[in-house]
Design a protein around this nucleic acid. Structure first.
Length: 879
DNA sequence: GTCTTGCATGGGT
DNA sequence: AACCCATGCAAGA
């Protein structure tokens, strides 16, 4: 939304151009819907739905006061609660009856967008607000899914007694457990259990700050077939079945949602039990211990939440459809688990993730557990024994007797079983996903989805069988394991392929491809987030561009300068591998294709020949890419390869193939700072990686050298100007005191005639002394040695490479700053040590730090054409 | 001897 | 350091 220059009201029924935008409801992205005055007013007055959704479906009456509430709409989502017995109650009535918790917020944007744990954390930690709901319905309103699954591991399962207060069987936990840990987790427990289907929420107290106390009763059920009233039952035509028909949500919401999930074949990673979100939904406490006890308000339950991401259901629409069959039942994905060797083995025991078991399965208090009826995707019913073993003061939950089912599904280690709940029946449904078709799962690996928000296929919901990213390894490479899980998991009793999440998930050599993507390559893929204007922060007087959002992954492209000096960009189509010319500032997705070539419609089809000849391409392409291009061609003929060569995978795999080949030469793409836009010509972007690239002479006028010089001059000039402005008077006073001669510009380190500050620096800073010696040793004394590598004294000057230039500048700057600090701490009245000024001199440049103890006029002091470059914000990398 | 069961162990998070 | 959980393994059937 922030991209367009002209903003329109977010309300799809309005679309008025925003002269003044006001915040509306919070969207899934975390942003607020920008509304026009009229809509915002309506929203703030709680009349938004009345105004704009009057004719929409979903209006229901509060069971208590009869007030009409628009349900299933994000705008009013938090103004009502869903009642256990069906129906809804407005928030006011709910408050009166102690059901104060509004419906859960939507999962945080992080679940749908590349996101950061912080945001999750942040969101989950936020207190509830009736209007704080964010974003449209992801796929269904399944409050339980948004709940946490945390539950005290120590709490024993309790027997329950039955109570029948309102026609619904109710069981009150007969045993109260009250430990601090239980207290701490109660809300999250509740939220989890709310979705279990066996608990009826009776009363729930939630304080304004989100702390909650709950009185509730629960009902033990030996099989998870407790009829439960779905909050969006198919029997309630007024309520959209958001689960499978997300497009039926009110228009206002669909805007956003369609962007995120509406068009995805794969569902977004379903919201894990995040945050302590719970509602009056007819959820269930699976254990019945924690929260309800004594009906007292419970403490803050906003602690950690969380099913591990690897258990988040990553079920697809198709899978859901398959599970639900022709029925209109709503499928609530609960969790999934990759089968371990043990799980898939003959023992017939499927270890259940503890939190999942406690959250979604009926409570069991005895190790013997309960028989659990589970329906498979074909509709066949299985009965497993759901039980646990005491284990380290905890429990280990298992489903026993799964062998027939596993076999019937022809599952093996590495495959994924999914557990969902069919509503309104409340049936447990067990689905599966073969490893060969499974979307990236965190089980055993971190997927890129959660790593940097961009899937290897450019689609967070992509079903790549096993593309996984691991962390950057010691060698500075990002290693990627492409798990060719297909039929490759072998069950071994010992040293099995599937061990624990990472180490035990060993993969046969032929099944594993290790990606080595150099850091430079990775950097090259990063782009500033589109439409984001960097904020400029000033650190120690230097301005830096800062982007709030993480860089995104863009398509690797080439940034040559055409003969006319114009910056252009060559991008390669993901599909046909042809290179297309696009504007230098074009931001391309990692899966950019010809069809997206908006700049050259004539070449927006893969069938259109490439503009570049092979020869031109050869010249253009960095060595590595060149080879990559060749590989591409090869890959084209290899369907299997092509399959793997998508987006980042492409580069990644190429990098693999490149292994052993020469590192990029001087012609390679430059190191591009992630904060910088394509085409950026800053020193970082144009400079080859350290140690690479050509040597530079003092007279070199290459881009890099010029930029280095210019940057340095600019840096120093600006600093000087700033200082001189601030401290002119002080400096003048000091000058008078010291009665320094006019030509007091001193070579740094020349202690013979220096100011006290100079002496201080010269004598107290060994590093500076070293630097000084370096300078004097350098054959390019008096000039910046563009090849200097400050960190390598013995390799001073001419021989060192251009990669040191950045360091040189950094070094010089640091030295300068250090000098200033010392100056100020050395008794100067000037807190910033601004009497000390740095200048440059010489025909070209000087690495000799010149100290000016008193001149105000920088230009006069340094007639040597200090750059007058516009003081554009200096990128942090420009130092 | 084989299978089942229940718990213990220990690597990983 | 605590917890989770995959797996080992001993005891019993």
């Amino acid at each position: 939304m922030s991209s367009s220059s002209v903003k329109i009201c977010f309300n799809s029924n309005c679309k008025e151009v925003l002269e003044r935008q006001r915040k509306g409801w919070r969207r899934r992205t975390g942003e607020f819907a920008d509304l026009c005055d009229r809509c915002a007013t309506a929203y703030e007055e709680g009349k938004f739905c009345e105004t704009f959704h009057l004719n929409a479906s979903g209006w229901r009456c509060c069971e208590s006061c009869g007030k009409q509430i628009h349900c299933g709409c994000i705008v009013s989502f938090h103004t009502f609660v869903l009642l256990d017995a069906g129906g809804i109650e407005c928030i006011n009535c709910a408050r009166k009856s102690f059901i104060l918790t509004p419906n859960p917020a939507w999962p945080p944007p992080s679940l749908f967008l590349p996101e950061l744990p912080d945001r999750i954390k942040d969101l989950s930690a936020k207190n509830w607000s009736p209007i704080a709901g964010s974003g449209p319905v992801p796929w269904r309103q399944a409050p339980c899914l948004f709940s946490t699954s945390s539950q005290s591991e120590l709490q024993p399962r309790m027997p329950f007694e039955v109570d029948i207060p309102s026609g619904i069987d109710r069981i009150i936990a007969s045993e109260r457990v009250s430990t601090s840990s239980l207290e701490k987790k109660k809300i999250e427990d509740l939220s989890v259990k709310l979705m279990n289907g066996s608990l009826k929420l009776d009363t729930l107290e939630v304080h304004e700050n989100g702390n909650s106390g709950i009185k509730r009763e629960e009902q033990p059920n030996s099989c998870i077939t407790v009829p439960q009233q779905s909050c969006f039952s198919k029997n309630d035509p007024s309520t959209p079945n958001i689960g499978l028909t997300i497009t039926s949500t009110p228009s206002n919401d669909s805007n956003d949602q369609s962007k995120v999930s509406g068009t995805n074949a794969k569902r977004p990673t379903p919201p894990p039990p995040l945050g302590k979100q719970f509602s009056g939904h007819n959820g269930v406490d699976s254990s019945g211990e924690t929260h309800i006890r004594n009906g007292r308000p419970r403490g803050d339950a906003r602690g950690r939440s969380q099913l591990l991401p690897r258990y988040w259901p990553k079920i697809t629409d198709q899978e859901l459809q398959q599970i639900s069959g022709d029925s209109n039942s709503v499928i609530t994905p609960l969790f999934e688990k990759m089968l371990s060797a043990s799980d898939a083995g003959r023992i017939g025991r499927l270890v259940l993730p503890k939190k999942c078991a406690e959250a979604y399965f009926p409570p069991i208090s005895q190790p013997e557990g309960l028989p659990l009826k589970v329906q498979d995707s074909k509709g066949k019913e299985w009965i497993f024994q759901f039980r646990f073993w005491p284990n380290n003061n905890s429990r280990m939950y298992v489903l026993e007797g799964v062998t027939p089912c596993i076999q019937s599904m022809q599952l093996q280690a590495g495959d994924i079983v999914t557990f969902s709940r069919l509503e309104p029946e409340g049936k447990l449904v067990m689905g599966f996903r073969k490893a060969s078709t499974a979307p990236p799962s965190d089980q055993g690996n971190e997927t890129i989805n959660t790593y940097n928000g961009v899937s290897t296929h450019g689609d967070a919901n992509s079903a790549d069988p096993a593309s996984t990213w691991s962390k950057v390894d010691k060698s500075g490479y990002i290693a990627k394991e492409v798990v060719r899980a297909k039929s490759s998991f072998r069950i071994k009793r010992k040293n099995g392929i599937l061990g624990s999440k990472s180490k035990r998930l060993k993969i046969e050599n032929e099944d594993m491809i290790e990606l080595k993507l150099t850091w430079e390559q990775a950097q090259g893929l990063l782009r500033p987030p589109p439409y984001h204007v960097p904020s400029v922060v000033v650190i120690e007087g230097f301005e830096f561009e800062e982007y709030e959002d993480a860089p995104i992954v863009g398509r690797p492209t080439i940034f040559p300068t055409d003969p006319l000096g114009e910056n252009i960009q060559w991008a390669q189509c993901e599909d046909c591998f042809k290179w297309r010319k696009v504007p230098a500032d074009a931001l391309l997705s990692s899966r950019w294709t010809c069809s997206e070539n908006l700049w050259d419609p004539e070449r927006s089809l893969c069938s259109v020949p490439q503009e570049l000849t092979e020869e031109q391409l050869e010249d253009l392409l960095p060595t590595s890419n060149r080879a990559a291009s060749k590989k591409m061609k090869t890959a084209k003929q290899d369907p299997d390869s092509v399959e793997a060569l998508e987006g980042l995978d492409t580069l990644a795999n190429l990098a693999i193939q490149e292994e052993g080949e020469a590192l990029p030469s001087s012609s390679q793409a430059t190191t591009r700072h992630p904060r910088h836009r394509p085409g950026c010509t800053c020193i970082v972007c144009i400079q080859p990686p350290s140690g690479k690239g050509p040597k530079h002479k003092q007279t070199c006028t290459c881009n890099v050298c010029l930029t280095v010089k210019r940057r340095f001059r600019t840096l120093m000039l600006r600093r000087e100007k700033k200082q001189s402005e601030k401290e002119a008077e002080t400096a003048r006073q000091k000058q008078q005191q010291l009665q320094l001669p006019d030509d007091d510009i001193q070579i740094f380190g020349d202690t013979g005639n220096s100011s006290p500050n100079q002496k201080m620096v010269a004598t107290e800073d060994p590093e500076d002394d070293t630097s000084r010696r370096k300078s004097s040793l350098s054959p390019f004394k008096g000039q910046i040695d563009l090849n200097i590598q400050p960190e390598r004294e013995e390799e001073l000057s001419p021989g060192s490479d251009s990669g040191s230039m950045m360091r040189l500048i950094q070094d010089a700057t640091e030295r300068y700053l250090r000098q200033q600090r010392l100056s100020s701490s050395g008794g100067s009245r000037n807190s910033t040590g601004n009497e000390t000024r740095l200048g440059v001199r010489g025909g070209n440049f000087s690495n000799i730090i010149i100290v000016d103890s008193g001149q105000e006029d920088v230009e006069a002091d340094h007639p040597v054409a200090l750059s007058t470059n516009p003081p554009a914000p200096t990128s942090i990398a420009d130092r």
